[in-house]
Amino acid sequence: MYYRTHISVKNLNVSYGSQKVLNDISIDIPDKKITAIIGPSGCGKTTLLKSFNRLLELQEGVSIKGQVLVDGEDINDPNVEVTHLRKKMGLLFQRPQVLPMSIYENVAYGPRLHGIKDRKALDDAVSHYLKEATLWDEVKDRLHKPASRLSIGQQQRLCLARGLAVEPEVILGDEPTSALDPISAERIERKLLDLKNRYTIVLVTHILRQARRLADYIIFLYMGNLVEHGPVEDFFENPKDPKARAYISGQFIESSDA
């Protein structure tokens, strides 16, 4: 199957201090598909995800070598505006992190940053993206109440609305359903499936079934190495690497070469 590439990682090496986290990763992330990064805890999933929007460089003592190309452009090039790069990517965290302001202001935050000042345009954007994140009906009467009063599931949808409101091309999710109850998780999952025709989506998940339900493409990391990647059917039906096979079937991975 042929995929158009949106994000391209070339020989990416990341270490925190003396500890190597990602080891020579090269991978292409397909455009307008859901890609799931899976693997055991501490294998570098989140690190890989955060390298896409350069959030990684905020980490303590991190050193990054290699290239990440977004739309063919090296994101570490000195000419790239980091704010512009990040605007292209909406990010959902494990635990939703709303901003200390009202529901309305949370969604309007991004559009305001990127230059929308007109009240009417902001109102429209807020209602549009809250509807997009299926939160509108629950909050339309209390838009100016603090966002912190929402339930955690609602906060995650608010974060989705906030992320979409900057009009990104990519949605990054770092286990975005893991702190949510099953119903809230399902709403987020449905929404992601619904959004994948318009956005490139990259999810970190440790839930294999979730990867299988949502993803088109799988990246399997183990101890900082890219072990296997491929379309979801191939990966789950016919994994080539013994580690991937063991991980899928829920066995311990023999760490002979680790």
């Binding site: 959030l55 990040r86 901003l99 200390p100 935050y109 940053l113």
Partner: peptide, 20 residues
């Protein structure tokens, strides 16, 4: 994470400081 999520929206550090 608050810093991260604010920067992820494309804030500059100054906007993070002043607005959030």
């Amino acid at each position: 994470e608050m810093n991260e999520s604010c920067l992820a929206l494309g804030s500059t550090r100054w906007e993070l400081a002043a607005k959030v």
